Computed example of a mutant assay.
Amino acid sequence: MSAPAAAAEVAGELHRAGGDVTLGVGCELTVFMAGLVPGADVAARLASLAAVAHAYAATRTDRPPPPTRLVAADH
């Protein structure tokens, strides 16, 4: 089984157990390749994606806002 498939299996189990799960796979290409997301460099592209995420989250009253900083070691 590939790593993304294994991650999807675990995410599915967590979701079925009642967890609020989001699985992002392949975002590296999105931020490291110029032209897919607005921005002159990786930092600017990440900022663009974060702005979209926060704008979307503002429309969702059923969920807390996304974190302003996410560190995998914190979770």
Results as ranks from 00 to 15, higher is better:
residue 45 R to M: 12
residue 61 T to F: 10
residue 68 T to K: 15
residue 49 L to Y: 01
residue 46 L to A: 08
residue 17 A to N: 14
residue 51 A to R: 01
residue 1 M to T: 13
residue 61 T to V: 13
residue 71 V to M: 01
residue 1 M to R: 14
residue 8 A to V: 05
residue 74 D to G: 05
residue 65 P to W: 03
residue 37 V to D: 03
residue 41 D to C: 00
residue 16 R to Y: 03
residue 42 V to H: 05
residue 38 P to D: 04
residue 45 R to C: 08
residue 54 H to G: 08
residue 10 V to A: 13
residue 4 P to M: 06
residue 5 A to L: 15
residue 57 A to S: 05
residue 16 R to F: 00
residue 19 G to W: 10
residue 30 T to Y: 09
residue 10 V to Y: 12
residue 25 V to Q: 09
residue 71 V to R: 07
residue 30 T to F: 09
residue 15 H to V: 06
residue 22 T to C: 08
residue 1 M to S: 09
residue 54 H to C: 13
residue 28 E to Q: 15
residue 8 A to Q: 06
residue 40 A to Q: 08
residue 54 H to S: 15
residue 23 L to C: 04
residue 29 L to W: 13
residue 13 E to A: 04
residue 15 H to Q: 12
residue 52 V to A: 04
residue 56 Y to P: 04
residue 53 A to Q: 02
residue 71 V to S: 01
residue 15 H to D: 14
residue 30 T to G: 05
residue 3 A to R: 09
residue 55 A to G: 09
residue 14 L to A: 13
residue 35 G to Y: 02
residue 65 P to I: 02
residue 65 P to V: 02
residue 17 A to F: 12
residue 29 L to Y: 14
residue 70 L to F: 14
residue 39 G to Y: 02
residue 31 V to W: 09
residue 72 A to I: 11
residue 12 G to K: 00
residue 11 A to L: 07
residue 52 V to G: 00
residue 55 A to P: 07
residue 3 A to C: 12
residue 31 V to N: 05
residue 67 P to L: 15
residue 25 V to N: 09
residue 36 L to F: 06
residue 13 E to V: 04
residue 14 L to D: 13
residue 70 L to R: 01
residue 64 P to H: 01
residue 26 G to E: 08
residue 32 F to C: 15
residue 52 V to T: 01
residue 36 L to S: 07
residue 5 A to P: 14
residue 5 A to K: 15
residue 52 V to K: 05
residue 48 S to H: 11
residue 34 A to G: 05
residue 30 T to I: 14
residue 32 F to E: 07
residue 4 P to G: 11
residue 8 A to G: 11
residue 53 A to D: 06
residue 54 H to Y: 11
residue 47 A to C: 10
residue 37 V to Q: 02
residue 9 E to A: 13
residue 60 R to C: 08
residue 46 L to H: 06
residue 71 V to F: 07
residue 75 H to K: 08
residue 65 P to Y: 02
residue 3 A to H: 02
residue 54 H to V: 05
residue 12 G to W: 04
residue 43 A to N: 12
residue 54 H to E: 07
residue 9 E to T: 12
residue 65 P to N: 00
residue 19 G to E: 10
residue 26 G to H: 04
residue 66 P to W: 04
residue 71 V to G: 00
residue 15 H to L: 06
residue 73 A to I: 02
residue 29 L to V: 15
residue 34 A to Q: 07
residue 42 V to L: 03
residue 56 Y to L: 09
residue 62 D to R: 13
residue 7 A to Q: 01
residue 24 G to S: 05
residue 24 G to V: 10
residue 60 R to F: 12
residue 49 L to R: 00
residue 19 G to R: 08
residue 70 L to G: 02
residue 54 H to D: 08
residue 27 C to Q: 12
residue 29 L to R: 15
